[in-house]
Amino acid sequence: MLGTGLLQGLAVTAKNLVGSFHDPARLPTLEYPEVQPQLPEAYRNFPFLVSESAEDPMGTLRCVACQICEKECPPQCIYIEKSKDKKPDAAGKQQIFPAVFVIDTSVCMSCQICVEVCPFESIKMDQVFAIATTERFGSLLLTREQLAKPNSYYHQIHPTEAAEVDRRLAADRQAAEDKAKAAAAAKSAAPTPPAKPATGGPAA
């Protein structure tokens, strides 16, 4: 009969009206500034650079300015200038470092490609999303100093992933040390040319 479909629809909306008062599934709104969202661990926003220590972020950046991320970045929002000199990295090896590392977050599309291609686990995705600025050009162009965040922060936002990365880095370091030790032992035993040098990073 004409009108039954209309009444059925009215019943559904009435059910939702009443349900919104007692059923949380029918009122899923999160009142944002008061209630902060529970971000999933995988949530990604803009990249940051991992440094080993919080005290000396510029001295302990993992980045070795290899420029792979700069080349792979789809919107090309990363700009890197290599340093002229070298300084020891976290493992104590002499490495060049980024003299300039800039990410234009007004261009960045948070795709995570830079993180995936980085062989040194030195660039990771941040979770800070309240990043409005009052100035359009300078404030959105993040420099090396603004991008550097300590490894402990990385552990805080992506605990599982960071633990795995640390394990992998420790294993690499161990392997490098073992190899160095073996090489030294071999050198002291018989002066033969050293074995192939250890590769820089973990497998991609």
Binding site: P28, A42, R44, M109, I113
Partner: peptide
């Protein structure tokens, strides 16, 4: 709004898997 209510649940799943709600990559 009803459709978006359900879409939100799927987007939450996408976000917890891929890190992003719509641009999953």
């Amino acid at each position: 709004m009803y459709a978006f209510r359900e879409r939100e649940k799927i987007l939450d799943l996408f976000e917890s898997l891929s890190g992003s709600r719509m641009m999953c990559n």
